[in-house]
Amino acid sequence: MSEPAPTVAARGTGVSKIYGTGDSATTALDSIDLEIHGGTLTAIMGPSGSGKSTLMHVFAGLDSATSGTVTIGDTDITHLDDNALTLLRRRSLGFVFQAFNLVPTLSVLGNVTLPFELDGRRPSAGDLAWIRELLARLGIGMLETRRPHELSGGQQQRVAIARALAMRPQLIFADEPTGNLDSRSSREVLGLLRDLTREYAQTVVLVTHDPVAASHADRVVFIADGRVAHDVGASSPQELSDIILSLEVDA
């Protein structure tokens, strides 16, 4: 039984982010070293203001680090200009946000094929077959022509997941993807996210403050005061809650 050596989907080395200068300077990230393994669902947890959102922004090339380097796959994104970062996001990254994931003027299919069309190409027959498979797998196959405002919150999040997977990106960032959902839809969406990670060997980074959400992950990284405070494997919501509480008490 020899498992293949885990590939590294993203790596941050000595990543710091400091807002402001002088007396008003705030350290959001304090020299963080972190590797995200390929094909896993990694949750980033932390109390409000811990720096977990900043960490995600920097890893996704949405914000630049003050010092340190971030690589996605083999690409060092630390010194890329805006255009190169945009192309990277378009081709190699997927996003699922808490809300406002979809362009209101486009249909479900239009939203999912958007990354292809931004690239100036029609999705090929193969791409479309893959997209249809995804939509069917996510249980929204019959909603293709609907507009976002005609969908429930859970359906909207499924569309966002389909879009994130459509380009088969190297890495998907999900920022509180269930923050706006009721607990049942929330459980369904997270279950799908985890299953798809396995089925299609996708790498997903899930940013959340919710221990129930994070309990779906293969690994949970806790951020507190801009540092990695804990790094644990798959855990129950109870165990994750205890760690979060201990962090809050220490703070």
Partner: peptide
């Protein structure tokens, strides 16, 4: 917000 979303999904400034 919508423009931010488009930018996140890979809309260049030129687009």
């Amino acid at each position: 917000r919508e423009i931010g979303l488009l930018r996140a999904l890979g809309f260049t400034k030129k687009q």
